[in-house]
Every structure is written in C-alpha cells, then in structure tokens.
Simulated assay, not measured.
Amino acid sequence: MCPDEKVPADFPRELTHALLPGSNPKLAIRLIDGKYYAGLTEEELLERYKACNDLAQQLASYCTRKESENPSWTRDFNLARTRAGVARKVTAGLWDLSAAEQRWVMARVEHLLSW
C-alpha cells in the first residue's frame, strides 16, 4: 500500500459475517502473515475502496450522459434509476457490494455530480 493512498473515514468498514457451529459465542477471525484479523486487512479495505470509488466515477458519468439523453428525467429520477440498477446487479450476483458500500457509492455519485 502506498503511503499517499488512504481510505476515507466515511467508507464502510464492516466486519466479515460468518456462520460458525456451536452454542457458545464465537468470533470469526483470520490468521494472515502471523497477524489475526477480524474483518478486512488494510490492503483489502483499500482495494474495496478503489473498486467502489471507480464504480462511483463510472456511474456519475453514466448519470451525466443519461441526463443529456433524457432531458425530461429529473435528477432524482435519474439517481433512483441508477440506484435500482446497482441493486439489481448486486442481487443477481454480478457485483459484490455490501448494502453499506452501495449506499456509499451512490452518495459518492451524488457528490461527484454536485447534485
């Protein structure tokens, strides 16, 4: 990881969900290079952030294009349509985004568009 690359504080940092058998409380952790991790490593988190940020930039361009192609669409309609499209891709298993990452991506799209 380069020192100048940082994951912003508002990017979701969720714990990994796991199903573990037994009746006693459990903590899902991973051993990576001699260190224990509950959730993503900094490198994994950075990769997820980069992918989500790239997607947000592509979706912002898409919304801009759709706005010019369909002048009768309101910005709210355009964003709602895009949000629904992202959700469909996730539900179909085509994109691997958590619900929190989906919200972050769409908030980033709105920020990039300054809408």
Rank of each mutant, 00 (worst) to 15 (best):
L27I: 13
L46S: 04
L79Y: 13
A60F: 08
G34D: 14
Y37K: 04
L97V: 01
W104S: 04
L15G: 12
A18M: 06
T91Y: 05
G93C: 02
N53G: 02
I32Q: 12
R108K: 14
L15M: 11
W95N: 00
S61T: 10
R83M: 03
P25N: 12
D10F: 05
L45V: 01
A80M: 04
A51G: 00
T16R: 13
Q57F: 10
S72K: 06
W73E: 03
P3M: 06
G39Q: 11
N70K: 09
G85H: 03
K26I: 00
A99S: 11
L59S: 03
T74S: 14
P3G: 13
P12Y: 13
L97T: 02
Y49T: 01
N53F: 06
R13V: 04
E42P: 02
M1T: 03
M1Q: 05
Q102R: 14
E67H: 13
L112N: 06
Y49L: 01
R13Q: 13
R83P: 00
K66H: 03
A56T: 06
M106D: 04
A9R: 14
L59W: 05
E5N: 11
C2M: 03
D96K: 15
K26M: 08
V7F: 08
V7T: 09
R13E: 13
D10C: 09
E42Q: 10
A38E: 14
W95C: 00
N70Y: 12
Y62V: 02
S98T: 15
D33G: 08
Y62L: 09
A9I: 07
N70H: 12
V7L: 07
V105S: 08
K6H: 15
